[in-house]
């Protein structure tokens, strides 16, 4: 049986940045993800590498500044090595991962380096409209949540068909 881990992350006090945690709370009750572990966290921290290492498929859900508001995109994560840091770290222009905020590629890299695990990993991103202070999602992002759930369920389901590995 495939062990799936879904991590929705973002700051719920920053409007659309809360899309990840909000998606996680919806996905936690989604029957298509029964048996999967679903986490909602404010930011990615190195400890999550340990959780990732125990999964066979990992789906990270995050708000993104690059897409159109409400646009849902899926991309595979490639594990970062020490020389390839920074591109997906939290801060624009940061030379490496900031404090305890690491990006998906770094986390996957940690899971590989530290625990010898290589789960397949994907990021489902939702284009943000507004990242100002606030606890509410914009209508575009809210409307995108069902599509996010479908995308995550699709990835996890596909992983199951393929079997562990």
């Amino acid at each position: 049986m495939t062990r799936a881990l879904v991590i929705g992350y973002g700051n719920t006090l920053r409007s659309d940045d809360g899309a990840g945690p909000e998606a996680a709370s919806i996905l936690a009750g989604d029957p298509r993800l029964a048996g999967a572990e679903v986490l909602a966290v404010q930011q990615l921290v190195p400890e999550l590498a340990l959780d990732m290492s125990r999964a066979s498929i990992v789906v990270l859900v995050d708000a993104s500044v690059t897409g159109r508001p409400g646009e849902v995109t899926v991309r595979p994560v490639v594990a970062a090595g020490a020389g390839e840091m920074g591109g997906t770290a939290g801060m624009a222009g940061a030379p490496g991962p900031s404090s305890h905020h690491v990006g998906p590629a770094e986390l996957l890299g940690l899971a590989r380096e530290l625990y010898g695990a290589a789960p397949s990993a994907f990021v489902v991103s939702i284009g943000a409209a507004d990242l100002g202070p606030g606890e509410e999602l914009s209508p575009e992002v809210r409307a995108a949540l069902p599509r996010v759930a479908d995308a995550v369920a699709g990835l996890v389901g596909r992983g199951e068909d393929a079997g562990p590995g």
Binding site: P46, M85, P95, V102, L114
Partner: peptide, 25 residues
């Protein structure tokens, strides 16, 4: 700085990084 970060630590001294993760967790 491309090396001077947590992934770099994981590669250079994985035991240290694992211990850090285990204690914090």
């Amino acid at each position: 700085p491309a090396r001077r970060n947590i992934i770099g630590v994981a590669r250079e001294n994985p035991g240290l990084a694992r211990d850090g993760i285990a204690i914090r967790k």
